[in-house]
């Protein structure tokens, strides 16, 4: 018994060094050399200043930008310090009424007819609360509003969506999507 305890203890010292320090530091070191930008969070810089990470969604409220999905991370959403979903049950009454409020708000801000079928992603919160993407349909429904706010013809914005749709990887893996931060930066670059 005493022998086992001593052995276990020495084991932990060795393994904490190998697995707890050498292993993560080795991976960190190699990553820093081969993938310097990715290992640091795929940050996007404009004029030398970081405006966000291409992987982490952020809030957009103004009419001139594509809006992201609702978020349950933090009080106002997209708080990367408290990632997570709402965990609301599909039968929860509050959940259903929250979604129907979001639905009405989305239709109103984008001036959509009442019978428009709205994609689920734009009225439901993601699991991480930091989902950087929206579906192509959800992007298309926002075109009119952005076109008006920026006085850019709608077809230019539609083109932007089509060109910047991220398709299934290798043609079959994952889902087609639009990265909200990246496309909003492109919108700013369109002029105006």
């Amino acid at each position: 018994m005493g022998k086992n305890i001593l052995k276990s203890f020495l084991f932990y010292i060795i393994f904490i060094i190998i697995l707890g320090l050498l292993y993560p530091l080795l991976v960190t070191g190699i990553s820093k050399i081969i993938f310097p930008a990715k290992s640091e969070g795929s940050l996007i810089y404009i004029g030398g200043k970081a405006v966000g990470s291409e992987l982490i969604g952020q809030n957009f409220i103004g009419d001139k930008y594509f809006h992201p999905r609702p978020s349950a991370a933090g009080k106002d959403g997209y708080d990367a310090m408290s990632s997570g979903g709402s965990n609301l049950a599909p039968t929860n009454k509050d959940f259903i009424s929250t979604v129907s409020e979001r639905l009405a708000a989305f239709k109103k801000e984008n001036n959509l007819p009442d019978n428009t079928i709205i994609p689920a992603d734009i009225v439901t919160a993601s699991g991480s609360g930091l989902d950087p993407d929206i579906s192509i349909e959800s992007a298309m429904l926002q075109v009119e509003r952005i076109s008006k706010a920026r006085s850019i013809p709608a077809n230019e914005i539609q083109d932007l969506i089509t060109k910047n749709t991220e398709n299934r990887i290798l043609g079959f893996l994952g889902e087609p999507k639009v990265n909200v931060l990246k496309i909003n930066i492109l919108l700013d670059n369109l002029g105006k």
Partner: peptide, 24 residues
């Protein structure tokens, strides 16, 4: 309950990420 509100299929998207979708 979401389909009745006029939400398109797939409706079960709360808690899911766009990049993974229903399948993944």
């Amino acid at each position: 309950l979401l389909a009745n509100l006029g939400i398109g299929s797939p409706t079960s998207f709360e808690g899911k990420e766009v990049r993974f979708g229903i399948m993944n």
